[in-house]
Design a binder for these strands. Sequence first.
DNA 1: GTCGAAGCTTGACGGTCATCGTACTTCCGG
DNA 2: CCGGAAGTACGATGACCGTCAAGCTTCGAC
Lengths: 128, 128
Amino acid sequence: MDPMRSTEATADRIPPHPDVAAVPLQAVLEALVDPVRRSIVTQLADATTDIRCGDFDLPVSKSTATHHFRILREAGLIRQHYAGTSRMNTLRRTEFDTAFPGLLTALVDADRTQPTPVSAHQESPTAG
Amino acid sequence: MDPMRSTEATADRIPPHPDVAAVPLQAVLEALVDPVRRSIVTQLADATTDIRCGDFDLPVSKSTATHHFRILREAGLIRQHYAGTSRMNTLRRTEFDTAFPGLLTALVDADRTQPTPVSAHQESPTAG
DNA sequence: GTCGAAGCTTGACGGTCATCGTACTTCCGG
DNA sequence: CCGGAAGTACGATGACCGTCAAGCTTCGAC
């Protein structure tokens, strides 16, 4: 009800974001090995602005998408904040590049060259 | 029995190595997400010469190690050749860097900064 | 030829994770 | 206040993958 709430004042409902420097490399790789999550990251990397959860092009249900966003947030890859009922997502590029130099660039670059096929109901597109 | 067999003539027993350019990014990430396999890669990156399979410092049984070497070979990350009964392993750095620029460097670099804890009988060191 | 060393193959097992549906919460517009 | 929209939380389920032991193959030494 405050007139103060534009885009930044409603952040209470979001669990705390980790310090990227404290995230283990293992967690980062586990986050990025999933094609759906990697698709989220590349869509963010290609965008110039934040993206709503619901505006991503994803082949999974809403609850599964929520799960993926959480993994990415906990891996320090994305930052989330509320705007109304919409959760906005940003890539934490600068911070991440400090902690893992070159990693995100190399991955997004590779994903652009070889777009990862993200089809639903398939956990291991390589083996399948 | 040929006198010709120094180190390169015995390569028959090794399945063919893939063309790195044809390896999907997904396969590369699935290979590198495992801490044991990442440990193999970093040990190779730190070495100046080839390493025998048995000379790696790995917390798993021989059969499991064989499995990991195969995954890495099929992901285009290592090259294997026989020398007697020993299988030698080399990092395919140059080829890999051409196909996935910056990826290997960023990963090895990150792994050096944050050495991955590879303990036996543990598939998900992050969650555990 | 025989033996040991090095490593592969196979089969089985157990844990982890991606997936979903359902129910719940929070916010905005009338 | 009420309804819809946007997401989350919670269980349940099924598949994949890392793990190992046992047995086999290949090579080198003697």
